[in-house]
């Protein structure tokens, strides 16, 4: 991968990772987490694992949706 793209996508990934760690609101955290996932896919495709990327792109939202169930519980209680 060209250095420019590695830097740009790596920047997106690191930004997502750091903000996921420091935010406090669960919805903000989940949005940052999906930013982190967005930064990772170009690396996977660049290595040539297109099938892995397709599966991971379908699997990653499921984790978020499962996590949202706990968020819903908390939002209703509060």
């Amino acid at each position: 991968m060209n250095e420019l793209y590695a830097i740009l996508f790596g920047f997106i990934t690191l930004l997502g990772g750091v903000t996921t760690a420091i935010y406090r609101d669960p919805f903000d955290k989940l949005i940052s987490l999906s930013l982190l996932a967005a930064g990772i896919f170009p690396f996977i495709v660049d290595r040539g694992y297109v099938d892995v990327a397709a599966a991971a792109a379908l699997i990653a939202p499921l984790g978020t949706i499962f996590t949202l169930m706990v968020c819903r519980r908390r939002a209703r209680d509060a």
């Binding site: 599966a55 939202p61 978020t64």
Partner: peptide, 22 residues
């Protein structure tokens, strides 16, 4: 790659829709 793109597109849209809806 079109397949992977379509999967990523569908997945990310579903994810943000689910976040917004919740």
């Amino acid at each position: 790659t079109i397949l992977a793109c379509a999967a990523y597109f569908v997945g990310s849209t579903l994810e943000s829709n689910a976040i917004a809806s919740t």
